[in-house]
Amino acid sequence: MAWFDDLLFTYQNLAVALGVNGLLALSMYVVLAVGQLSLGQAAFMGLGAYSSALMSLQLGWPFWAVLPLSCVVPVLFALAVGGPTLRLNGVYLAIATIGLGEVLRGVYLNVDVLGGAMGLSGIPEAAPLWLIYAMLALAVLVLWQVGKSGIGRAMEAMRLDETAALSMGVNIRRYRLATLCASAVLAGLAGALSAHSTDFIGPNDFGFEPAVTILSFALLGGIGSPFAPVLGAWLLTLLPEVLRPLADVRLVMNGAVIVVAVLFLPRGLLAWRMPRHVRPGRAA
């Protein structure tokens, strides 16, 4: 298996990025699945990354204790801002969440213990690769099961027609807040795993550009099933690597691929919609 170790060593960073971006794409998928254009994923990821790095560096806590706690911090943030923020819709929600992300970025840049513009380095590389992929697989499995259940049906109903869902007894506020928290958990997890496998984090890793990149993962893949956003994330992570021989032009190609994909495949690359069971005793 020496060749496999060589391969892993060469592509260590890429392997980490594929797993982490898969989790981020799922974090985006959860809010898109209820029709919310909330772009706070990069901010949640930043909270997970910074809080986990601080727990490791300042408090010296072991990674198995840090990882779950780093999911709690973004959830607390989601609960704190969720009330007023989730009353917004569409573009207003998108811009409010980007704004919250920028406020957090300002905090990272200006608080000394968070390293300022230099960011935090020397974070122990404690996250094994298998753990990242185990988390990704677990997230896909959970989202698949939830998606198949009545909860998934309610979520799809909300996305397609909010008023109709409301009149059928779907508690829209509660679903919105719950999906925001789920999104925060996934992004916080991705942030902590990424911080503990690359040893460095900086404020610009969690700004506007990462926020739209995460959105593009989910939109390129589609939101018909949890597999689609992961596929989108993997393609957009691999594409710059495959295009590496093109040097400077590869980012141009990256953008062009997104344009062509959306123009010609408006439902995403994987438009297939996951099956949902009809409750027994009712007509389909």
Binding site: L219, L251, I258, A261, V262, L263
Partner: peptide, 30 residues
């Protein structure tokens, strides 16, 4: 034009212009 004719939602146009602007900035930098 194509999206407008198809009556696509604002997400689609957001995404297309996002891809385009990434390509444009990268092209200019290159």
């Amino acid at each position: 034009t194509r999206l407008r004719r198809a009556g696509a939602d604002e997400l689609a146009s957001l995404m297309v212009t996002l891809g385009a602007v990434l390509a444009l900035y990268a092209g200019m930098t290159a």
